[in-house]
Simulated scan of single mutants.
Amino acid sequence: MVSSDDVVIGACRFFLRHATVDMDKVALDLAISRATLYRVVHSRDRLLGDVLWRLAEGMLRRAREQRSAPGVDGVLEITRHFSAGLLESAPFREFLRTEPDTAARVLFTASGGVHRRAVEFQCEILRDLATEEGWSRTDLDHLAYLYVRIIESMLYAELLTGRQPDAELAERAIRALLQPV
C-alpha cells in the first residue's frame, strides 16, 4: 500500500521535473493505479497543495535557519530568503505561468491548503518575535494572516494583477504591520 507521504514525495519529484502534476503520470511513476492515487490524495488540487507546501516548507525552514538578525529585521530576513528562493524557482514560475487558475485556487483557497499552512508557519515565526520583543501573543494569528497576505500579494503580483513583484513595498507594509501599538 502506498502512503500519502510516498505520493507527495513522488509528486514533488515530478513537479520539479515538469512544473506540474499530471495524475496519470504520477500514478505511473509510483507504479500504482490512478484510482489508488485518487483514493490516497482525493484530488489533484489537494495533491498540488501538498506538493507546493512541502517544497515551500523546506525553503521556509532553510530561510529560518539562515536568520542572523534579531526582532523584526530577523523576521524580514527569513521572508527575503524565502521570497528570493521562490522567485528563482523555475518549476514554480513555470507552473504559475502555465496554470494560473489552478495556481490561484491551490495557493489561495482551502482546496489546496497552502495559504492556511503558510499562516500557521508564519505564526510560529511571529511567536519567536513576540518572545524577543515582549509582545502579547493574543493577536499573532491575525498578524500572521495579514503578513502572509502581504507576501502573497508581492510574490504572486504577476498572477494577480499583471504587475512585477515589489519586495520593497511589501517590506514597508510589513514593517508598518509589525510596529508595536
Score class of each variant (00 low, 15 high):
residue 151 I to Q: 12
residue 73 D to V: 04
residue 115 H to T: 07
residue 155 L to Q: 06
residue 42 H to R: 12
residue 181 V to Y: 13
residue 90 A to C: 07
residue 80 R to F: 02
residue 75 V to F: 07
residue 63 A to H: 10
residue 118 A to S: 10
residue 84 A to I: 05
residue 60 L to G: 02
residue 111 S to V: 11
residue 123 C to S: 03
residue 152 E to V: 07
residue 155 L to T: 04
residue 102 T to I: 12
residue 77 E to Y: 03
residue 20 T to F: 01
residue 110 A to V: 12
residue 145 Y to D: 15
residue 45 D to Y: 06
residue 159 L to A: 03
residue 6 D to V: 13
residue 111 S to C: 07
residue 128 D to F: 11
residue 114 V to L: 01
residue 104 A to G: 12
residue 138 T to N: 12
residue 52 L to H: 01
residue 95 F to P: 00
residue 57 E to H: 14
residue 98 T to N: 14
residue 110 A to I: 11
residue 142 H to L: 14
residue 130 A to K: 06
residue 36 T to G: 07
residue 134 G to D: 08
residue 172 R to L: 15
residue 148 V to E: 09
residue 140 L to P: 00
residue 146 L to N: 14
residue 109 T to G: 02
residue 101 D to Q: 15
residue 80 R to W: 00
residue 38 Y to F: 13
residue 117 R to E: 10
residue 29 D to L: 05
residue 54 R to W: 06
residue 42 H to M: 01
residue 23 M to T: 05
residue 101 D to T: 15
residue 122 Q to C: 13
residue 157 A to M: 07
residue 95 F to D: 02
residue 14 F to S: 02
residue 69 A to V: 02
residue 133 E to K: 14
residue 149 R to W: 13
residue 131 T to V: 15
residue 46 R to A: 10
residue 117 R to H: 04
residue 13 R to I: 09
residue 25 K to I: 07
residue 146 L to V: 15
residue 25 K to G: 00
residue 55 L to D: 08
residue 71 G to Y: 02
residue 34 R to I: 06
residue 73 D to R: 02
residue 120 E to L: 13
residue 5 D to T: 14
residue 63 A to K: 03
residue 129 L to D: 10
residue 19 A to G: 00
residue 125 I to Q: 13
residue 120 E to R: 12
residue 172 R to E: 15
residue 129 L to K: 07
residue 82 F to K: 01
residue 138 T to V: 13
